[in-house]
Structure formats: structure tokens, C-alpha cells
Design a protein around this nucleic acid. Structure first.
Lengths: 228, 228
DNA sequence: ATAATAGTGTCTGTCAGACACTATGCT
DNA sequence: AGCATAGTGTCTGACAGACACTATTAT
């Protein structure tokens, strides 16, 4: 298939899949069960099939291990890593995707790792760097897109949405100002369903209005995480 | 080299290289001189060498055709395209870079094409879509990064910088407000050299202060192209 | 009543666009 | 003087963070 003028490469699609659990961001990781890097933590990934687009392969890598419904996984391309020595076995180019979903419970293989607890244990390949890139991408995309709703179920409350921002950004967000910006600034970020739900498990607290994600994808103006 | 469990791919690095010429944005294009798509317009690109990182290959593809100095070409990864049928010859994955530089004059091969004049002629492969993605990326990155200086020589004036924004965004920018935001809002976006130069070729007009790019890479707050 | 949380109103400072005005070169 | 362009000052409205206050549930 490959002629002498273009060397052959192995191509993988990997995924940095994030969920919210217990108010903290978690990343899907596996432990490698074969060389190289046996026992090391790694991102789920798969070799690209002969007739497969990279995004589909990345979805496959995540869905195989999580039991998520394909429609509930939001994937977008993060970057491609092509350093010649990044895979000791062979020359491998990895197209990495950022994935966002609602917590589907424990994976069939692997573990949801809190992203704030930086593990001392080493990562396989260059995955430590990729994780950093992925988390930073998620943080910045929350500022100017409606991506946060991908971490929430179909219906949610404004405080739920605020907790997503707090978890991803790792800082508190003022409730009243957040509410104002979400509801007023960007048209169609969220739309009210008319329903309400209890404020918390105890039942205390004023009931909360329920919303769905609107059609907007970009936030104008952005929700800045800069100052304060 | 490739075992049965991972198919082999050809990998290319392509570049959407942009310059400013005559107040308009131009894109480096070539005409294909061999199948497939003989005679069609295409982005410069090259197969990735056996020990070459994709960014280096993209730089090589541009430098080979432009005579640019490597230090004068700003490259950053745009996206990777992996649709199975995008190259009729073989299965090809292309890592595409966005390139920005100062006008180096006519290329040794190819042409600087004004990006506003959408040519009716067809593009090779999926390059038409890639060009759209690249231009949109450039437009949005000018909002929140200091990327615009990559299209200017080492020293430039505030009106020069404004004309970059006008060319890339395709709209006028208010001179006085632009100046205020560049100089006040973001620390170290540009730094004055102390020199001045004539306002225009005629010599008429107040002389202009000269600046260099500062160390900043991100703009806080961003320069919005939204309203008005 | 008190606790807990949602949600509203408002004060104040900053920054946006808009634009009048001044500065400095040339012919 | 008049033209051309750079650069300053300022008005006004929108929006930011901050925070006091009200609303609605439960115990």
C-alpha cells in the first residue's frame, strides 16, 4: 500500500475524557497491561481502523470502557502528537480528542481519576503532557463556548452549571453574577423548562428552576475566569 | 515495521501560510503537478519523514517554496484531517498547521492568493475546507492572543498593527479605541522603540511611533471583533 | 425562629464604542 | 492655509465584581 516515497506510520486516536463527580473533575485513565509502560497510567486509545475517521476511533476507545451512550459523549479534537520517539515500539502519530460526558459510573476497565490529585506515578508515553493540554483546553473553552453543558445531564439548574465552572476552573464563582451573565448576556445558552426541583437532598433551601441547554455554542461575551 | 494489529498510514504535514500584502490577507497555494488533482489548487504539504515531527515537516513545506527564514515563520497546529477517502491514492492522515509570516515576495513555486477572492476553481483533496478552518482560526486567535505581530516585521507602528486586524477580520477598526486597548489593556503586547517614522509614502501626516512585539502571548481582555 | 439555598436589586468602577479635538508632518 | 495622518481627551452606556436583601423550602 505504501510506496517508497512516504514512510508508513501507526496512527492512534486517544481521548482525554472528563466528567464531573462529587463536585470535582475526573479523567478516564487506564493502566497498561502490556508493553511498553506496563502498569503505567495512560489515556484510553486505539489504533485507527483502516476505514475509520479519527473521531470515531476516539469515541470507540471511550465507549468501550465506560458504557456511555454514544450520543452522551461530546468529543472534539484536541491536538496531534507526532514526536518521533514518543512510542518506543514504532513510529506512532496520535490524534487526541477531548471528551466530555455525564458520570456513567465506574468504567468496565480503568478508573475515573480526580484531575486535581496530580499522581506521582508516571504516565505512559507523553500522556502526562497531553492531560495538561486537555485540562487547559477545557478550562479555556468554558470561557467562550457553551461546552459546560456537556458535563451535565439534559436538564440542570443554574447552580449545577455554576458548579461545573467551579470544578473545572478550580475556583469559586459568585452565584448572583454568574446567574446574571448566563441568563442575560448570552442568548440561548440555557432555556427554562418551567420545572423546579428541591435545592438539595435535605429538602431545605428554596427550590431551583430547571433549564435545558439552548442552541448557542459560542458565548458573547465570554465568561472570564481571569481576575478576582 | 507495522504489525497486523495496526494498519499503516501515510502522514502528511500541510500548511495554511498567511501573509499580509497590500492590506489584504494572502494564502500560499500551489498547483498540483501530479495526480491526483493535477492542476488543482492545493496547500503546500509534504509526507512526514521517518524521524521528523509534524511541525518541522510543515515548516519545510513552506520554507521550500517561499525563501522565508525559519525564524520568521510562526507555525501552530491547526487540526488533523483523517477522513478515509480524503486521498484517493491511499489512506492519508494530514496534520495541518497555520502559518503566519511577513510577505517574503513571490514564492519559488506557487502563488500568494488573496483569501477574500474565493476562487471558483476547485481545490485538491479537502483543502477548501481546511482553508476555511485556517482563516477562521486566524480570525479568532487575533482576538485573544498577540498573534497579529507574527504578520508584521520586527518593528511596526500601531496603525500597522491595526491594519493587520482590519485585513484579517475584514472590517474597519476604530483607530483611537484600538490604540487605547493595545497600549493600556494588555501589558507588554507592544513596547515602544522610541523611534518614529513618516506616516505614509507622501511624507504627509504626523510621524508615527515605532513599536516592537512585547513578551505577552495572551490578551486580557481580548480585542473583540463582535459588535458594531 | 433558624438554617439553607435560590434568586433579585443595586452600588460603583472599569471599559466599550463613538467622536470631537489637538499635533505634526507635507505641499 | 490646507491636507493627511497620528494621537489625546471625553462623553455615555454597558457590564464587571461585590454584596445587601428578599424568597421559599425544611426542621
Amino acid at each position: 500500500m505504501s510506496a517508497p516515497d512516504h514512510p508508513a506510520f501507526a496512527v492512534t486516536a486517544d481521548a482525554a475524557a472528563l466528567i464531573l463527580r462529587g463536585g470535582r473533575l475526573h479523567l478516564l485513565t487506564i493502566r497498561r497491561d502490556r508493553p511498553p509502560f506496563v502498569g503505567s497510567r495512560a489515556l484510553p486509545g486505539t489504533f485507527l481502523g483502516p476505514d475509520e475517521v479519527a473521531g470515531a476511533a476516539a469515541a470507540r476507545a471511550v465507549l468501550d470502557k465506560t458504557g456511555l451512550n454514544p450520543d452522551d459523549l461530546h468529543l472534539e479534537q484536541l491536538a496531534t502528537y507526532s514526536e518521533p520517539d514518543r512510542d518506543p515500539r514504532m513510529r506512532t502519530v496520535s490524534v487526541v480528542y477531548l471528551g466530555l460526558a455525564v458520570d456513567p459510573g465506574e468504567p468496565t476497565e480503568g478508573e475515573w481519576l480526580p484531575v486535581t490529585s496530580v499522581p506521582d506515578e508516571p504516565w505512559a508515553f507523553d500522556h502526562a503532557r497531553i492531560v495538561e493540554d486537555a485540562v487547559e483546553r477545557a478550562r479555556s473553552k468554558l470561557e467562550y463556548t457553551t461546552l459546560a453543558t456537556a458535563l451535565l445531564p439534559e436538564t440542570f439548574t443554574i447552580p449545577d452549571l455554576r458548579r461545573v465552572y467551579e470544578a473545572v476552573w478550580g475556583r469559586e464563582v459568585h452565584p448572583s453574577n454568574f446567574r446574571r451573565k448566563v441568563l442575560q448576556a448570552t442568548e440561548d445558552f440555557v432555556v427554562p423548562t418551567g420545572d423546579h426541583r428541591p435545592a438539595n437532598a435535605n429538602g431545605s433551601g428554596r427550590p431551583t428552576a430547571v433549564y435545558r441547554a439552548g442552541g448557542a455554542t459560542a458565548l458573547h461575551p465570554p465568561l472570564t475566569r481571569s481576575h478576582t
